[in-house]
Design a binder for these strands. Sequence first.
DNA 1: GCCGTTTTCGGCCCGACTGTTTTCAGTCG
Length: 579
Amino acid sequence: MVSMTNKQIAAVLDEIADLLQLKGDVFRERAYREASRRLDMLSQQAAELYAAGKLHSIPGIGKSMEGHIAELLETGRSQRYEELKKEFPTGLLELLQVPGLGPKRARKLYEELDITNLAELERAAKEHRLHSVPGMGEKTEANILRALERRLTRGRRLLLGVALPAAEQVAGLLRGHPAVAAAEPAGSIRRRLETIGDIDILVASTQPKAVMEAIIHLPIVKEVLAAGPTKTSVLNPDDLQIDVRVIDPSTYGAALQYFTGSKQHNIHLRDIAIRKGYKVSEYGIFKEPGDHRVGGEKEEDIYRVLGMDIMPPEIREDTGELEAALEHRLPTLVELSDIQGDLHCHTDWSDGVDPLETMASAARALGYRYLAITDHSRGLGVAHGLSIERLREQRHLIDEFNERSPDLHVLFGTEVNIKSDGNLDYEDEVMAQFDIVTASVHGGFNQDRDTITKRILRAVRSPYVDIIGHPTGRLINARDPYDVDLEAVMRECAKCEVAMEINSSPERLDLNDVHCRQAKELGVMVAINADAHVAAHLNFMRYGVYTARRGWLEKKNVLNTLPFDELRARLRTRRQKRG
DNA sequence: GCCGTTTTCGGCCCGACTGTTTTCAGTCG
């Protein structure tokens, strides 16, 4: 059997969907697209499910699709895919990336003008040959040319940690305006996706004109890109584009539901509505026949009328939340206020900026009852890792601090490096002295799957390790995760009662949302940590909580929701059991 | 290609906008 990962299979199915799109076979395209998405999110290996004969029990994967996936698993190829590829030149799919160009026009351009890639499209547009195609005029040609020029400068998706504060700032300013009844960021920001395409803010008001006028004059607006009667686009001082839409208060709930998405969630929701004799749009929910409105002022109207519990935006991804809402078995997601402390941060003793006292004050201000100081270990020279001697001094400092701090407990910890051979950076006698240990990979990212998996498994089996830090090492938009068999690590963590971290730093969010859900299913505890290197970054905690919520985690799945006494007892008994 | 509390056949989200056209096709979110 050829070993293909879920991601690889999903990629092939997605390419088949692309080709079907060119053919105009929209429903098959959707079926392949959906199957690809399901595989991509799947926490188990498709190969295992296939071996167990359970592939077609995944929603969106039927008998035929199971056959295609089986062929890929067994031969590494797909006949359907090979045949489709022969029908069109490879460059043709590039055309679909151009805004304004869909499958119909792309195909027409190929058939009428023999255009097979972006370069040829650009040349034809400049030579004014496009408008000779029926249905394409001067304006279409100009728009395509403009899109082609812009395409080169289009940036990547924004980190939530950048987009959310910017959106909240604008929404907050708008809420202060007398004509504004409500204002909040919608779209992927509201769902707390790790990266964001567009910043969309919805405003409820009966006076759109006044609101539009107010936006233009907000102090944080650097430039106005477009100002229409109900939608305005502006740039903030960091050149982030923010779109603001004004909605009549009577349809604000329906609009908020619609603009929050996800697209897949909305499609499925509307499908359920049809089956129950309703129609859902951004203007409300309507009862058939006669289309009279039965709700839409409040967001929960839409769900309530359909017999569902309303679910938090974070899980509106069409991964089972609608079914759960219908059956009244939605999880109660963990909340920021459940967090009792932070188990991973750095001080000026290693590569942090602030001293212990400053970090502790900041933790206290957040209402935490404990904070683990986990500076880097000896071997990590670039981060001023702590020698045995300096560890002893730091322990002393922390003991002293705890004597005069009745409300906040500081734990003496370490972020010990997992060396490339799988050994930890301190000897067992040293490890035994910490209150808490997080073990992380900081180098040797390119090891092959088997090597790096075994390496991390060794760390998990150490009786002194409590948490595996940033378990995949990815940096969003910057560095791919290392090729670790995360499921194997999770199973071992469950067995050894080792927690896995959600590193809350906005460029990490590692574990990610899909991993979190898998961890929950496998019975792995998760620790949500800010990995702060400066006091202000303790506030990153909320991004980790969002990720946990996107992964359906509840309070009981999260280690640092425990009160201090229970946490300490848990760490101690575990150590005794395994040490 | 998937799916079923109207269906194993005949559906598959909904509305806005744009540009090209005289009533609509294509694209987008």
